[in-house]
């Protein structure tokens, strides 16, 4: 489904990603871990099409299509969803209104009829249950005055509504207490299917207790330096990242 080949990206001339290779197949959950500043969030942003990042080399195929030439909105319409680490506030625009605009633009791109108010609301009701989100929250201004947990729950709710093919969760666990973490993870798990895939970007192993990955990759200095199964995450939790850093840095100097 997703095939990243030798991806290099920089911001304001500083290289951040230095040759990422990653294959994600339908039905899989991949976790991207790594120390601070290793390029985890950059990878998520580049995939979503954030313009500050300049791709200097490499290619990304998404469902057989070149992803990088597409605008951010077309990537979204093709089925790429990014759950933001810091969801953005838009005053005066309710989540409902925002999502209705989004969903109908996505549907239009896919050649589907726009949803009328009744169908939209019933879809909302269905997805609200999934992330245990209150309707009152959805009629408030998008993310404005939301608690950290509410914001993240709202991200997953949007994900449920837009029904993406590839979901990228960027540090979705940051700022969540244990209950919110469970609710958010449950939502993500319920949305998993044989035809969709998930990339979980996280600093901590904790989230992976709830969203169990098929593969764990460690990102360091802009490269995937180690890949394994969920046991790797446990090992990292126990030992930290230093041993990997040492391993990488010593081979680099040899």
């Amino acid at each position: 489904m997703l095939s990243i080949k030798n991806l290099h990206a920089s911001i304001e001339g500083t290289p951040i990603l230095r040759g990422i290779n990653l294959e994600v197949k339908a039905g899989e959950v991949h976790a991207i871990m790594g120390p601070n500043g290793s390029g985890k969030s950059t990878l998520a942003s580049v995939l979503a099409g954030r313009e500050e990042y300049e791709v200097t080399e490499g290619e990304v195929l998404f469902q057989g299509k070149e992803l990088l030439p597409l605008s951010p909105e077309d990537r979204a319409r093709e089925g790429v969803f990014l759950a933001f680490q810091y969801p953005i506030e838009i005053p005066g625009v309710s989540t409902t209104n925002f999502l209705r605009t989004a969903l109908n633009q996505v549907r239009e791109y896919r050649g589907q009829e726009p949803l009328d108010a009744v169908k939209f609301l019933s879809l909302m009701k269905e997805k609200m249950a999934l992330v245990e989100i209150d309707q009152k929250l959805l009629s408030r201004s998008l993310n404005e005055g939301f608690s950290g947990g509410e914001k993240k729950r709202n991200e997953i709710f949007q994900m449920a509504m837009l029904n993406p093919v590839l979901s990228i969760l960027d540090e979705t666990d940051s700022g969540l207490d244990i209950d919110a973490l469970r609710i958010v993870s449950n939502g993500v798990n319920k949305l998993k299917s044989d035809t969709t895939a998930t990339i979980v970007v996280t600093h901590y192993q904790r989230l992976l207790d709830y969203i169990v990955p098929d593969f764990v990759h460690v990102l360091y200095k802009g490269r995937i330096v180690k890949s394994g199964t969920k046991e790797l995450a446990l090992e990292l939790e126990e030992k930290g990242y230093d041993w990997i850093k040492e391993e990488v840095d010593s081979t680099a100097t040899v």
């Binding site: 909105e73 925002f98 633009q105």
Partner: peptide
């Protein structure tokens, strides 16, 4: 970008943000 990432074209995003503001 947040709007774009949800599939909303930039022009519509500006309209949405401005109308929300007003």
């Amino acid at each position: 970008f947040y709007c774009n990432q949800r599939g909303i074209a930039t022009e519509d995003a500006v309209a949405l943000i401005v109308n929300g503001y007003a």
